[in-house]
Design a binder for these strands. Structure first.
Length: 330
RNA sequence: GUCGCUCCUGAU
């Protein structure tokens, strides 16, 4: 009981939401009691994964246990339903909250955005009695996601205060439109950049095939205060791949190990691709073999690398292994 | 063992 909750918390904090849900169903199956410590954590996981079955079950248990009246719980439920794409359930909960605080407003607005209901999001934002910086960030980001950077930047300029997330949202808006120079201009203006600011602009350069500028920015990052993370390397490695810069790629690979950057599926996939494009099939294969988690992208990338180098038999062998592992080909 | 909102990521 104690133990289960601790485990759940651990999974949740490291982002292993799938594992948390598995553990939860094990708890239910072995009739371990779920209590007010269990619910928030499992709710968070089902929200992240978008698992409506578990979400609704938790909702029911929370109500039965009488924990359902607190704003925090209701806010978590709103978030969960919106992540599952059911904004009207969420709205029903939202409407019934008597003491609405800023966070539950923000959650509902962000929820509408996730469901693609931009009008409702904007209406609710306009109705808000009191907005904080997150409220503004959400709505700025919404316009960026719609590709309406004009409105986004108007609101960005209007907002009473900006934090690094506001800046990042705006930079990412320009980046998505392919406006690298504009993204970079804002980036240079950010008072206190974080790792996301860097990643966004590097990604923008790479997507627009401006590989040298991407690498240049990555080099600048080395001498900045900010430490690269796994998203950073996933962003830069394709630049190495396209330039055939094997030495830089290897350097980054070593860098990952030295700086204990998480070797997740994303990182491994880009490493395999990079080695493949730079002509080093063996190293690609080594990364593949060492990868703990393998999804269809990773398998597909490995197969393609082998095929690209004319290793048809080996490619086919991997393809068979993939089928045996019951991974759907892509 | 107490909790809820907003920004960046992979092969064709």
């Amino acid at each position: 009981q104690f133990f289960y909750n601790a485990m759940l918390k651990g999974y949740s904090e490291t982002g292993a939401h799938e594992n948390a849900l598995q553990l939860y169903s094990l708890m239910r199956a072995s009739s371990v009691t779920c209590d007010s410590y269990t619910f928030p954590v499992v709710l968070r996981s089902s929200s992240n994964v978008g698992n409506i079955e578990v979400g609704e079950e938790i909702h029911g248990l929370i109500m039965k246990g009488g924990f359902g009246s607190r704003v925090i719980v209701q806010t978590a439920l709103i978030d969960m339903y919106c992540n599952c794409g059911i904004s009207n359930y969420a709205q029903r909960i939202f409407d019934r909250i008597s003491e609405k605080d800023v966070i539950c407003w923000n959650t509902m607005i962000a929820g509408y955005v996730k469901c693609g209901e931009f009008e409702s999001a904007r209406d609710l934002f306009n109705q808000m009695p009191l907005r904080n910086v997150s409220s503004w960030n959400t709505i700025v980001d919404m316009y960026c996601k719609k590709g309406d950077v004009e409105t986004a930047s108007r609101l960005f300029n209007e907002m009473p205060e900006r934090d690094v997330i506001s800046w990042n949202a705006m930079i990412s808006g320009y980046a998505k439109m392919g406006y690298c120079d504009e993204a970079r201009r804002l980036f240079d203006m950010v008072p206190k950049r974080n790792v996301v600011s860097w990643n966004t602009v590097i990604t923008c350069y790479v997507h627009n095939r401006r590989f040298h500028e991407a690498l240049e920015l990555f080099r600048m990052m080395q001498v900045s205060e900010v430490k690269p993370n796994e998203v950073t390397v996933v962003a830069v490695l394709p630049a190495c791949a396209h330039l055939g810069a094997l030495d830089m790629g290897q350097w980054i690979h070593a860098y990952i190990g030295k700086n204990q950057i998480k070797m997740d599926v994303y990182v491994n996939t880009t490493l395999i691709d990079m080695y493949g494009k730079c002509g080093s099939v063996q190293e690609a294969r080594r990364v593949f073999d060492n990868a703990v988690e393998k999804d269809s992208f990773l398998w597909g990338t490995m197969i393609e690398v082998l095929a690209m180098h004319g290793k048809a038999e080996e490619a086919f062998e991997i393809f068979e292994r993939m089928r045996r592992a019951k991974i759907k080909p892509n």
